[in-house]
Every structure is written in C-alpha cells, then in structure tokens.
C-alpha cells in the first residue's frame, strides 16, 4: 500500500476538561486497507471514532485526510470528505421499508418532487446483492432483518453514497457468531472495493482475520500499533486483554479461591 494514507492521525489527543480521554495516538489507514482499533471499555475507542467522524475536535496532534490537515466541525464535513461512520445503533428506522431506509436523507427524485421509487428499489436490491446480501423484498420493514443484515444495509448505504473511508463502531458487538461472520465478510468486501476501513471492536478474534493494522488502546493510550505480519492472533489477544494484567488476574483468582475454600 503506497501513497498518502486516506486517514492519518499523528499524536492525536483529546481532553474533556481535566480528564484525558486520549493521548498520543497514531493511526493510519489507506484505501483498500482495514485498520482495527481494539480496546476494552473506556480505552478511548469511542473518543477516537468521534474525532475521526467529526463529532469532536482533537486537542493535540494532527488529523490528516489524504495528506491534508483537517479539523472537522461536524459529521457533515467529515461525510463531505468521504468519511462515513456507521454507529452501533445503525441509524435505521425499523418500521420503514429497506429501500426507504437506504435512501433516507438522500432520496432520489424526479420531476415535481416525486420520488423515483423504481430506481431506489432497484438500486437498493442491486447494491445489497453486490455485497452478498440477497433480499427477497426491499419493501419489507428493515426491522424484520437480522442484526447483521441491518448492519450490512447501513454499511452498503454509506458505500453507495460515496464513502471513501468507513468507520465501523463495534459492528459485531451485539451479534451472534454467524451474524458476525456476515459482517466480517462484508468488511472484506468493502476493502476489496477499495475503501479504507477503520474497524472498532473489542474482539481480537473478529479483528485478526480482516485487519491489516492493529491499534490497541488502553486507558486512553496506545499500547501497541502493529501490522499484521508483526503480530500473531495470540499476541493480539494477549495485548488486548492487557497481557500481564490477565496473568495477574488469573493468579489473583486462584489465590482467592484457594484462600476461601478452606474457610468454608
């Protein structure tokens, strides 16, 4: 992967008052790459997404899009630069048909403000099919789709409306094993289509198969930033779990049970 990365954060940090939510984080992702951001709850993942998505401005460091320094004032500005964020809650309206959700907010119209319903139905079906989701009926309410499928519709929508970079906020968190597989396959699809993907997750088993780079956050700091050839899945899992911390925890638990059982 050569050339300037699509998104590059250098030494980025963010404070909320006197709370340092994120400090000195580097991250980059180029077209056709997946960068995974891993971390436990409170590690600073959501702060990082919010900076990339344009919801918050970074306080320190730099944020470059295609080599140009930016400081987004709103998600709209980020969208205009081709950075689309798909949040966990998906931003879909459950009772509305799939195609209406797909085009919501960017409806295509023909004369007299009429919706071009035929075009939107066909496009929705086509775009989803191209991503490997075959819907029987784009008129069914999106609420009747499974969580994974809904996630995929949200991603397909972002791709269709010209996203160059996708930021996915824990897309597999609430899903079963099979559903998560669907979403992961979809992430690979997006990468193959030449998108840059930032994939936020706390599951190293989801991150490792699809990622090209891995950024591991802990307590607002980067505790590891590796390309795929630098780490193994086990190392990643270890890092993610805090490595030493996990061993300590196991030890502690052992001791605790050991100390308790005779007393009882």
């Amino acid at each position: 992967m050569t050339g300037t990365p699509l998104i590059r954060l250098t030494g980025a940090g963010k404070n909320y008052g006197n709370i340092i939510a994120l400090r000195e984080v580097d991250l980059e992702v180029s077209a056709g790459e997946v960068t995974c951001v891993l971390g436990d709850n409170g590690a600073g993942k959501s702060t990082l997404i919010k900076i990339i998505a344009g919801l918050h401005r970074h306080d320190t460091g730099t944020y470059e899009v295609q080599g140009e320094q930016v400081a987004f004032g709103s998600p709209r500005e980020a969208l205009d630069r081709g950075i689309a964020t798909v949040y966990q809650d998906l931003a879909v309206v459950p009772l509305m048909p799939v195609w209406r959700n797909f085009f919501l907010g960017s409806e295509r119209r023909k004369g007299f403000g009429r919706l071009d319903v035929g075009f939107m139905r066909k496009t929705t079906h086509g775009e989803l099919a191209a991503m490997g989701i075959d819907l029987r009926d784009v008129d069914q309410p999106i609420g009747t789709l499974s969580g994974g499928e809904r996630q995929c519709v949200a991603i397909a929508r972002a791709v269709y409306f010209g996203a160059k970079a996708l930021v996915l906020d824990e897309p597999t968190a609430a899903l079963g094993v099979k559903q998560a597989g669907v979403v992961l396959r979809y992430i690979v699809q997006a990468r193959e289509r030449g998108l840059a993907v930032v994939f936020i997750t706390h599951n190293p088993h989801h991150a490792y198969p699809v990622g090209d780079r891995f950024l591991i956050l802990n307590r607002g700091r980067s505790i590891g930033y590796h390309t795929k050839d630098e780490v193994t899945r086990d190392e990643l899992t270890g890092l993610m779990a805090g490595g030493g911390e996990l061993e300590e925890l196991a030890h502690e638990l052992e001791e605790a049970t050991g100390a308790h059982s005779p007393a009882e």
Partner: peptide
C-alpha cells in the same frame, strides 16, 4: 421526500 421524512 417529505413523506419519507415524516415516517422517519
């Protein structure tokens, strides 16, 4: 489009 927005 407005109709779509009303439902939404």
């Amino acid at each position: 489009r407005l109709g779509n927005w009303i439902f939404a």
